[in-house]
Design a protein around this nucleic acid. Sequence first.
DNA 1: GATGAATGAGGTTTCATTCAT
DNA 2: GATGAATGAAACCTCATTCAT
Lengths: 222, 222, 222, 222
Amino acid sequence: MIEKKYHKEAFERADDKRKNLILEVGIEEFSSKGYENANINIIAKNAGISIGLMYKYFATKEDLFITCLKRGMSVLEKSLDEIMVSEDKLLKKAEKLIRTICQHSKKYSNYIKMYNEISSRKDAPDSISDVVEEIESKRSSIYITSISQAISKGDIRSDIDPRMLALFLDSLLTTLQFAYTCNYYKEKFKVYTDIDIEKLDEEQIVTQLLRFIESAFTYETK
Amino acid sequence: MIEKKYHKEAFERADDKRKNLILEVGIEEFSSKGYENANINIIAKNAGISIGLMYKYFATKEDLFITCLKRGMSVLEKSLDEIMVSEDKLLKKAEKLIRTICQHSKKYSNYIKMYNEISSRKDAPDSISDVVEEIESKRSSIYITSISQAISKGDIRSDIDPRMLALFLDSLLTTLQFAYTCNYYKEKFKVYTDIDIEKLDEEQIVTQLLRFIESAFTYETK
Amino acid sequence: MIEKKYHKEAFERADDKRKNLILEVGIEEFSSKGYENANINIIAKNAGISIGLMYKYFATKEDLFITCLKRGMSVLEKSLDEIMVSEDKLLKKAEKLIRTICQHSKKYSNYIKMYNEISSRKDAPDSISDVVEEIESKRSSIYITSISQAISKGDIRSDIDPRMLALFLDSLLTTLQFAYTCNYYKEKFKVYTDIDIEKLDEEQIVTQLLRFIESAFTYETK
Amino acid sequence: MIEKKYHKEAFERADDKRKNLILEVGIEEFSSKGYENANINIIAKNAGISIGLMYKYFATKEDLFITCLKRGMSVLEKSLDEIMVSEDKLLKKAEKLIRTICQHSKKYSNYIKMYNEISSRKDAPDSISDVVEEIESKRSSIYITSISQAISKGDIRSDIDPRMLALFLDSLLTTLQFAYTCNYYKEKFKVYTDIDIEKLDEEQIVTQLLRFIESAFTYETK
DNA sequence: GATGAATGAGGTTTCATTCAT
DNA sequence: GATGAATGAAACCTCATTCAT
């Protein structure tokens, strides 16, 4: 997979401090206002550079957004990597994933909000395809690898395609992430469980979701 | 629960043909372009009414959007109702839900796109709260009721809160719905499974997801 | 002078209760929002009649405004009449006028706000001419008459044209009226005197303004 | 007193020619049509700049209006300053003021029309308060100072509060200004005096008003 | 007499992007 | 490399007035 670039060469030449600042400020703007309502002129101003220079760094607002998004996702990926690379059994890994999600929900809420945003963009499939590839391929392959290993070790069921299992697992975890950070999902969590997720004991959610996943991953259908 | 109105009285007085046309046209516009890029003037024109009259019917673009969204969701709810109200066992119901989702994916894709849209709005929790209530309360209570009954009959596990089970189930089904209709999720499905969901045999997805759910709902954790 | 009509015949045929209600509601709307921001549809709704009927009564928003204005001014005129028609000396009359203004400032503030509004309309001189005639001729002639009588009785100075005296007197009294009711003039009063006119003792203002007027009206220039 | 800014920084950076042109064009538009009917797009076009740039200079139509208004008032203030700062006695100053008003009536009619406009705005007292302060404080303090000096020198009466005297004086002069420039007041002048003020000999009005003021300012009430 | 649905021009404001310096 | 002035299309929303019933 070739990483596509969503910034111009000039951005690479800028010093790290500036690069970081631009992306931080952009993430703040995009995650708080959403893509359409974010204002690239304001991002430039808050990052202390001119709008002209901004366009020397990024061809379009879209490109800046994707670069910010990628930055956020790569941070999230790191925690993931550490967990999935370990020697733990899959269910232990799942538990750690859930705990990480609970704990990171505030720290990384802006990244997750951007992810929530991209997931409802109305772009044509062709133009969105690369982005999805960038964002999802790493995580999906980590999941799939871990699951495949677990299957071959006989730790989990083998009557469901590992790729599907990965997708189902991701679905549950992503929903949990959104419940912690995105307004709609937060409210939806309350409607379903009658609980304000911010006041919910982490152990509760870990236990319940883990039980669900454990059974789903363990027992083959008769 | 009191149903809040997102249209003015005048809209109720309009004849059904017009009401339907406005909402259909609105749904088409919102689902294809997203909320921000949708244009009320175009909706009015396509519905054959003046923009002035549009504002006699709906106070704001936001209100029109929510009314369109509610219309879509209520249609989806109907199929749901029929399934959940039946005498089937829970897992049979789940199977029917999955099949319905697969089959409705094209017919009702616009409704689902609007749902995808609302789920990433950046509104304040307070203002989004009512909408979530409107959209989610019916479906969640149907799920919860069915699950609770299944638990008391001993059909499924009893060591997970029925409300949580409902949420997990919904999470999986919603992801499936989005995979069928929303670009990002469609591409993500391909990244995970390497399969174009539109070319995928329905039976495949039913089998795999149902196995996952069945185990998750059946076996208690030791 | 021929009274021009600013309403249609149909309005005369309406029963008094309705006529009064329409004007009251109109006065409330115009005085609180100003002419441009007042909404004739809202006036109709608040008066309990249809907008169609409103246009059977008044040809334009402008006409409704002027009719409301005239209603208000005629009420104010009545207090004036009583004072000016009396046998009092001119300065006694002036005192009574000032007192009346102070006391009526709240009760009739809406009428005065409308008067303040008309006084800054940008209409062409031709079209505004009739309105000024309607509004000002009665009051001016009362003033002029009283002043002329006082002059011939030798009560006041005779070296200023009575019409000019009337104008100067009116200028001072109108400013006082506005200071009691219109925001800009109220604030201006505070800037000049450092006093909030609403907390000011009536006697104060009566004494000071009356002294000013008394000297101005009494002593001839050497 | 802190001068509040009603323009953005960018406006200050524009070159003087452009700044002047924008304000001149704005004053023309606002004074001829009134605030509500003035059109910023037209002002921008007539000033030869884009509407986008207009909004880089002024945050709102309101701000542009106030900036235009302040420009006009500061010009008027200058003539005033020259007169009031002189060594003349108060009544000589008053005479000069009257003459200046008569002579400036055409040249500065647009400024006065804007002043007439602001004096009937329906804004909340809080939001109008700053503007009144900006517009009135300079003039009022000049008046009050001159009057206080005249009192201490024994030139004029001392039984009326100098601040009140200032207000009464201003009231008469402002009415005269409006009579020269604003349609309603012009017509009203005609109704009272039966004279078209534009054809009136300046000497007439100076004589009559000055006599009034002189007596009012000179003779104490017995 | 009475209704109120319907019109649509028009105004304020936003913001991604360009380009001369 | 860096600036930021400048553009202008386009969108939401208002409301006086008309007219068929």
